[in-house]
Design a binder for these strands. Structure first.
Length: 169
DNA sequence: TCGAAGATTCTA
DNA sequence: AGAATCTTCGAA
């Protein structure tokens, strides 16, 4: 399966009250303190896995949450993992996309920079506008516009953040 | 050891 | 608007 990342959120450490790493190292958030480019996957609300990729040097917590992706290849497989929903609802949320792509805790701390079961790659330039807004589903850190998404992309999650602003072409 | 909250989703 | 559902965290 192949999907294009269309919506993400940034999380940091002790300077970010919305981050799992705000209060320091714990069993769950340990990947955030590890090597960059690795998966940080956590289970939440008793139902859903959420996928992040770590971003900082070891010892400094930081990660980017995948909030929505656009199906590119293997759409029938995604439909198998998420039956009874329309194509636009297949991957337009952090819990939805992990289910559609069959991502679970077994891939936690996986190196996403190497070719393997789960990795990120650059498929070249496209024309789109990146906008930012407040992050979704958090109660603190609302002063930061750290949700980033492709403006107008139909696979961006419906429930967006506030105070949107345009960033790049 | 226990209680509360949670980077969500689905249903009524 | 509210339930589902359970892991993780922090306080006691």
């Amino acid at each position: 399966m192949v999907a294009r990342i269309v919506e993400v959120e940034a999380y940091r450490g002790s300077d970010d009250p919305a981050s799992h790493a705000f209060r320091g190292l714990t069993t769950r958030n340990a990947p955030m303190f590890g090597n960059p480019g690795h998966a940080y996957i956590y289970f939440t609300y008793g139902n859903h896995y959420c996928l992040n990729v770590t971003t900082q040097a070891p010892g400094t917590p930081g990660a980017v949450l995948f909030r929505a992706v656009q199906p590119v290849e293997g759409i029938s497989a995604m439909r198998f993992f998420r039956p009874n929903v329309s194509d636009s609802e297949l991957t337009n949320g952090p819990g939805k996309l992990t289910k559609a792509l069959a991502i679970s805790k077994s891939l936690n701390e996986h190196d996403m920079t190497l070719r393997g079961p789960l990795f990120v790659t650059d498929r070249g330039k496209s024309n789109f506008e990146i906008w930012s807004s407040t992050r979704v589903g958090i109660r603190s850190g609302l002063d930061r516009l750290w949700r980033f998404y492709i403006n107008g992309n139909p696979y961006v999650s419906k429930k967006g953040g506030l105070r949107e602003q345009q960033l790049l072409r």
